[in-house]
Design a protein around this nucleic acid. Structure first.
Lengths: 125, 125
DNA sequence: CTTGCCTCTGACATTGATGTCAGGTTTTAG
DNA sequence: CTAAAACCTGACATCAATGTCAGAGGCAAG
């Protein structure tokens, strides 16, 4: 599978895939002429990477976690496990904060809706 | 209240406060010598701004929403209401995605924990 | 063979909030 | 009064993922 095909399948840009490889998040074999060749499994892998990016993890952190995806059968380093715990906690905190922000937004919207209603009534009168 | 005091009270840098003002998220009166002077209410305002930033809103978007906080008694423009709905939806989607990512992380951790246990047993034997 | 599309490397640009530095003025404490 | 600390403006730096461009080579179809 060449890079363009993977890009389309995973819904990311070719540029991003090259970047992921550069960051050692992705590996490719090279054809004699130097073109990258990816495996089917890389589609899911890219999806997972994107998900982690969206969750605010950095390339560096993802690099630390991916070995656990690749080879869960080998000894997962204590450092990696700790990193995962850490990121999970960070994620939970972030989620909670977002929920609180959404609530704040809801209050704001309710307040403004109420005022608009008041205004409409006044205008009608 | 001078800028340093507000910075400390709100837990942000002086630099950020100047930036917020530049972005019209914050207003200050100036002393004769040109120093900024803020109101107590700005502590909460900065907190809210930070919360929205953390939720991924841009300065531009926040600028559109803040009038609704300042003057909910005036006519809240349809555009602003729509913007709020929009951001709320975006926020919800993001939260959901984060939760899914956290779940994925949980699965990953469980898998690795299981393998570690297996390994320990093998080592012990 | 040629045309068109894909790929390669390498480099520079972008975005947005913030850090940092410089050089100068103001305020505050001793 | 003086020195330290806080403030001012303006400018440049940063980080990270991605866009974009340039110049060159690869590969399939007509």
């Amino acid at each position: 599978m060449r890079i363009g095909e993977l890009a389309k399948a995973a819904g990311v840009s070719v540029r991003s895939l090259r970047y992921y490889e550069e960051q050692r998040l992705l590996t490719s074999t090279r054809s004699p002429s130097g073109q990258r060749h990816f495996r089917d499994a890389d589609i899911d892998r890219v999806g997972f990477i994107q998900r982690l990016y969206a969750a605010g993890l950095s390339s560096r952190t993802i690099t630390e976690l991916l070995p656990c995806v690749d080879a869960p059968s080998e000894t997962t380093s204590d450092a990696a496990m700790e990193r995962m715990e850490q990121e999970r906690e960070r994620l939970s905190a972030h989620i909670e904060e977002l929920v609180r922000t959404r609530d704040a937004l809801d209050v704001l919207m309710a307040t403004n809706r109420a005022h608009r209603k008041t205004l409409r009534r006044a205008t009608a009168a």
